[in-house]
Amino acid sequence: MIVVENLNYSVANAQILTDVSVTLPKGGITALIGPNGAGKSSLFSHIARLLPMQSGRITVDGMDVAPANRQELSRKLAILPQQVHFATRLTVKELVQFGRYPHCQGRLRAEDHEMVAASLTAFGLTALADRFLDTLSGGQRHKAHVAMTYAQDTDYLLLDEPLNNLDIAASRALMALLRRLADEEGKTIVIVLHDINFAAQYADHLVVLKDGRIEREGAPVDMVTGALLADVFGTNAQVAVVGDTPFVMP
């Protein structure tokens, strides 16, 4: 599990995160949700060690993230940040191979090639393996980056707004795949989402942030309510529950 203790973060005179303490369970999908500027990506970036720790402590299965050896940490956490820059003349297969770097430092062995092939298959990219990234659609390219993260073969996958710029079909397909990885392969997936309905439908656990603080957390059916939408998101939209899944009505 991921344990965040007394995390504070500020930029200049602006307080971004204030005394954030939260435990993200091992296994399943945990979604970080909240309005723009709530601190979701800042919390994510601290867990992923993309931002320096100013105060507080974060551990992953007991490993202290801040002083951890980079290679050791990269065998525990696979990270896809919100902004990803890519070399256009890489092929899809070459990109996915980068996910194996923590294990082989660029000298791919048989097991690394097997994991790359499995990643391409899992994400439906085998037919595109030899295509250059700049010849793909935005959705295909995005899927390739997630496949690279999966190829790292870690217990934890951290994805910051992976549905950005994806249409509804691609978004549903990606979330369904992540759900399968959690259910069938025991992956722990921490994901930043803006779409509450996707979070409610696919996540096991929601962490709701507002103004840099943890507002509440729990199962989607308990969290996604009219009161949450009013108190946290400032909207009076209604919520319908179908089975155990809440949906925010348009």
Rank of each mutant, 00 (worst) to 15 (best):
F44M: 07
K143I: 11
P67R: 15
E114D: 15
G124C: 10
Q82R: 07
G56W: 13
L50P: 00
V96E: 05
T88G: 15
F132N: 12
F98A: 04
Q71D: 12
R107I: 02
F132Y: 14
P81M: 13
L108G: 06
S45W: 10
M53I: 11
L73P: 00
F44L: 08
S45N: 15
T91S: 09
A118K: 08
P81K: 12
F86T: 09
P52I: 14
M115F: 13
R100P: 00
R141V: 00
E94Y: 12
L43H: 03
T121W: 06
V60C: 07
L95H: 06
A68F: 10
A129G: 05
G124F: 13
I58R: 05
Q71I: 04
S42I: 10
Q97F: 12
I58H: 02
Q82E: 11
G106R: 04
E114G: 12
P81Q: 12
V96K: 03
V60A: 11
Y101T: 05
I79W: 11
L80M: 14
I58W: 04
A66C: 10
Q97N: 09
A144R: 01
S41K: 00
S41F: 01
Y101S: 08
S119V: 01
S74T: 02
Q71V: 10
A66R: 11
A118V: 06
D64H: 06
S137P: 01
A122F: 09
F86E: 06
G99P: 00
S137M: 11
I79Q: 10
V96Y: 05
L108T: 03
M63D: 07
L43T: 03
L50I: 03
Q71F: 13
L80K: 09
Q105M: 15
H85S: 14
G138Q: 08
G138V: 08
R75F: 02
Q82P: 02
C104R: 03
F132A: 13
S45M: 12
A127C: 07
I47D: 06
P67I: 15
D130N: 13
L51V: 06
R49F: 05
G139H: 08
S119N: 04
L128R: 08
Q105L: 15
S74F: 02
L125R: 04
H103I: 00
L43W: 03
K143G: 01
M53K: 11
I47L: 12
L133M: 10
A129L: 09
P102K: 07
V60K: 11
V65E: 02
T91P: 01
L95T: 03
F44G: 01
V60M: 08
G99K: 00
G139T: 04
R131I: 11
F44N: 02
A87H: 13
K143Q: 13
Q105V: 09
R75I: 02
H46E: 05
S42R: 10
V116Y: 00
L77D: 02
I79C: 14
A117Y: 06
L50E: 04
R70E: 14
D130V: 10
V65C: 08
F132H: 14
Q140A: 06
V60P: 01
F86L: 15
T91F: 01
V96I: 12
L128M: 14
F44P: 00
M53D: 07
L133S: 04
D61V: 03
A78I: 00
L120G: 00
E72R: 14
A66I: 03
G56M: 12
S45L: 07
L120E: 00
F132V: 02
